[in-house]
């Protein structure tokens, strides 16, 4: 017979490996296995984190989770599920770039009168500069030769740093700055930390496809940030519009208008309204007219635009594709 221990040991283990590098001065999560044979819930017992002898953080253990095979979260689809009791501690990484070895300590603790021994877990991690990345949207296409246009640029820091006030530059293919803007205070809807600016860009000087690059003028200074890769965006430059082409899309069999059909005339794109109609303004030239709509088929046609035009497109309604239809195909 083993004697009942005067104090129960606590087993501490990393449940998930830490990432190779964590962002400096940003919060990262330590997923732990926290187990004891006492049967006690260890939620709320104090912990310390030490770097060498110095305490760098302290707190109490957040909820210790007990997953069972009947839990909602139990999900063995990708392999055995770790059913050991676990808790997740949020830790602030140091502000300097380097490698660290820290120790998590649980001092002796009494839970509901049951004594538990002290426990410790040493873990290593490295810190690195935050990375930044960019997105460009509301990028018009086509654009008119020589006419300025505007678009939106957003920047994101991997640690969610506020990037308000950072300068964004837009460069043409020759590397000339043709637009600049400053990131605003608000983040883009649907994001947590994508700071953005609406930027006006000088119109292109040559006809045809064109490309610009976008960069953050200098990375944020307060904390180390890697320089964002320059992203690019494209458009196509056309001569100013001279003519109106009115397009009506109808169902071949019934003559009924086809609403919300996607229409494309060269570089010009639009969507039909409820009456199946749309008007595009464009310069003279030879264009290919294409119409797209799910479950419709409309043949491509060539269009020489020299004047205002009205075009009727007959789209053939296709039978609704059944998922099994391929088994019945000839």
């Amino acid at each position: 017979m083993t004697a009942t221990p005067s104090a129960f040991p606590i087993r501490l283990e990393l449940k998930k490996r830490l990432p190779e590098t964590v962002d400096v001065a940003a919060i990262f999560k330590l997923a732990l296995v926290v187990e004891t044979d006492s049967g006690c819930d260890l939620t709320g017992i104090p912990f310390l984190i030490e770097d060498g002898g110095a305490v760098v953080a302290s707190g109490v253990l957040p909820t210790v989770r007990r997953l069972t095979r009947d839990s909602e979260e139990y999900d063995p689809r990708h392999g055995p599920v770790d059913l050991r009791d676990s808790a997740e501690i949020a830790i602030l990484a140091p502000a300097g770039i380097g490698s660290y070895q820290w120790t998590l300590r649980l001092p002796e603790a009494a839970v509901g009168g049951v004594a538990h021994q002290a426990a410790a877990l040493t873990f290593q991690f490295a810190t690195g500069a935050h990375s930044t990345s960019l997105a460009v949207w509301d990028n018009p296409t086509p654009v008119t030769l020589g006419a300025p246009f505007s678009l939106k640029v957003g920047a994101k820091c991997s640690a969610g740093c506020c990037l308000t006030g950072e300068t964004i530059e837009i460069l043409d293919a020759e590397g000339r700055v043709v637009g600049a803007g400053v990131l605003g205070e608000a983040v883009w809807p649907g994001t947590t930390s994508l700071y953005w600016a609406s930027i006006s860009v000088e119109g292109p000087v040559g006809e045809g496809p064109c490309r610009w690059s976008v960069r953050m003028a200098s990375p944020p200074q307060e904390l180390p940030h890697g320089s964002a890769a320059a992203v690019s965006f494209s458009s196509v430059a056309t001569r100013p519009a001279e003519h109106k082409v009115s397009i009506a899309v109808v169902e071949q069999e019934t003559g009924k208008p086809v609403a919300r059909a996607q229409v494309r005339l060269g570089a010009f794109r639009a969507v039909t309204n409820d009456a199946g109609a749309v008007t595009l303004e464009l310069p003279s030239g030879d264009f290919t007219l294409r119409v797209f709509k799910e479950n419709y088929d409309a043949p491509e046609q060539s269009l020489a635009v020299k004047d205002d035009l009205e075009v009727l497109v007959s789209a053939r309604a296709l039978p609704i594709e059944e998922p099994y239809s391929r088994y019945w195909k000839t």
């Binding site: 296409t141 086509p142 490309r211 196509v236 996607q262 494309r264 294409r290 797209f292």
Partner: peptide, 25 residues
């Protein structure tokens, strides 16, 4: 997205090129 500009997919000849993938998220 540049294929959407021109309407020509030089890699896989996709005809339906109406929408750029550009707006976050």
């Amino acid at each position: 997205n540049s294929f959407v500009d021109t309407g020509v997919d030089t890699d896989f000849a996709r005809a339906n090129l109406q929408f750029k993938i550009q707006t976050p998220p």
